[in-house]
Design a protein around this nucleic acid. Structure first.
Lengths: 291, 291
DNA sequence: ACAAAAGTGTTCGTCTTACACCCATGC
DNA sequence: GCATGGGTGTAAGACGAACACTTTTGT
């Protein structure tokens, strides 16, 4: 017999920044135990998020389940979820939206924004790696040094490496370490680890499933779509090719309306073609089928 | 406070057939409650599988967690896992390997093996769909009728459709239905649904992560590799292009040895290049990055 | 010689990537 | 006019699908 805890990473994008909904001044994710009245895990999760933050997630998917130890001998099971929301406005006291990159400043590779943090992190990782070639190659593969490219999906692995090197405060709770920790806001328990898992999942998923649209208003311009993707991926994208990338998948259709009043040529307003959700099935084959 | 149940789908491929390890004469998956002594969910799972089947899974990954109701008012949480194993030999009484396709005969699209079952299923689905265009298009999308191709990853969705149409015995337990059910071996509780989830996950995963090698001996020929993939995907693959598909990813290296004594030209024996696990990180970008 | 399986070459068309350029609006 | 963002054309190269063909063994 165990306690089952539901934990939510609720994400939104505002002003080109991906944000996560938090409680306790940005140190914890909304969460609470599964209760009698909850008809399913998802409804339980939604109930907790709404009670603690007065926000209602739209799209929700399960992330991961892991075992923990409660104070005392009791066991706990934590079931984490990723939710997506269209607005990042706060009205409820205690609930705050914080940028992902407050917690993972090294993850924002747009226009070298992460450069200063990386300049701090990399020497310390080099010190941690020492002469060990296995450690050196792990650092290189994860942080894209030494000619290897940056892979934005390895969010969790990078966090775990920093944890292992005792460069994040969370690791110091259990194992002492020397020197300073690395920039990036701390969270309680393993909540920052869960956030890393959520970011990694979302960064992977936007590439092959039309989930971005859960974060956008129902009408949007191509640039808004692109900037939302860039915020999530933490990478700048090539504008003309991004347009073709979207058009080729037939993800959007024109509404007939355009923006106006801003600088530059008015942009066409688009909407998501909900029909693709049915059509899909043709996704990725990649295997060389016969005939 | 709830009961936490661990459930395993342990898969192997023998004689070109993908198999799953079962108990109770093929009607249930190995499972048991999380206990005090289990250091983690995974070790708990491994303990139960070994106790019930005397088999030890190699690779293990989490599938999905869902809530259930135990007899009485008590709640349960089921955490399901996918495990891969190199051998499908049975020595322990009560533990049996069964082909996936006993449970999902319509999923084996190799050389039209599923044709007879589909001939049985499709008319019944057509009857269920009736005049409803939404239902018709769902059937078409999932079963590849009407010009749309077969997508082998939609295992769970197809099972759920059959469930909804009350064409599987599991659905009849809760909701009555008319006429016969469709071929395919039944399982207790929702174990067949979990198996469908596992198959879908594995079919998706083999395309972008080198997990097939967990199912093969340490030395193998290109044909063995291909046939293992075909067994999992339930599709026949194009031999020359499959070779290039593997070579291009640099997944394997030659051992220097060859087969002999069989019909045809001897094949080179290969082994998995473990180095790729480190190199990876360059996986799939797909987004049009700038510069 | 022939069957059987291994393995190679090559073509054609599509998708990706990069670069260059034109278009429409506000000020 | 010019700054700003919207949008199109296109050529080089990578990749995928399909087909034809050569190679090496056992019988």
């Amino acid at each position: 017999m165990v306690q089952a805890e539901l934990i939510a990473v609720l994400a939104a994008v505002t002003d080109g920044d991906p944000r996560v909904l938090t409680i306790d001044a940005g140190t914890a994710l909304p969460s609470g135990p599964l209760q009698e009245g909850h008809r399913s895990l998802q409804t339980g999760l939604r109930a907790w998020v709404e009670r603690q933050t007065h926000h209602a997630p739209g799209y929700v998917e399960q992330l991961y389940t892991f075992a923990g130890q409660l104070p005392g001998a009791a066991r706990s099971i934590s079931i984490s979820y990723l939710g997506l929301s269209r607005q990042a406005v706060t009205e409820y006291p205690g609930a705050e939206w914080h940028s992902w990159y407050e917690y993972f400043p090294w993850e924002d590779a747009r226009a070298n924004r992460a450069a200063p943090v990386l300049a701090e992190i990399l020497p310390r990782l080099a010190r941690w790696a020492g002469d060990d070639p296995a450690r050196q190659s792990r650092v290189a593969g994860l942080f894209g040094t030494g000619g290897r490219g940056w892979n934005e999906e390895l969010v969790l692995q990078r966090y775990e490496l920093l944890w292992e090197a005792a460069l994040v405060p969370e690791a110091r709770r259990l194992r002492a370490g020397e020197g300073e920790t690395v920039p990036g806001k701390e969270m309680t328990h393993d909540h920052r680890r869960i956030l890393a898992t959520a970011i990694a999942r979302l960064r992977a998923k936007i590439k092959y499933r039309p989930v971005v649209f859960e974060l956008l208003a129902h009408e949007f311009t191509m640039l808004e779509l692109q900037q939302t993707m860039e915020a999530l991926a933490g990478q700048t994208l090539h504008k003309p090719n991004f347009r073709r990338f979207i058009e080729q998948q037939e993800l959007v259709e024109e509404t007939g309306k355009s923006t106006s009043g801003l600088a530059g040529r008015p942009a066409k307003l688009l909407r998501f073609r909900a029909a693709v959700l049915e059509e899909r099935g043709v996704s990725g084959t990649k295997l060389p089928l016969v005939k």
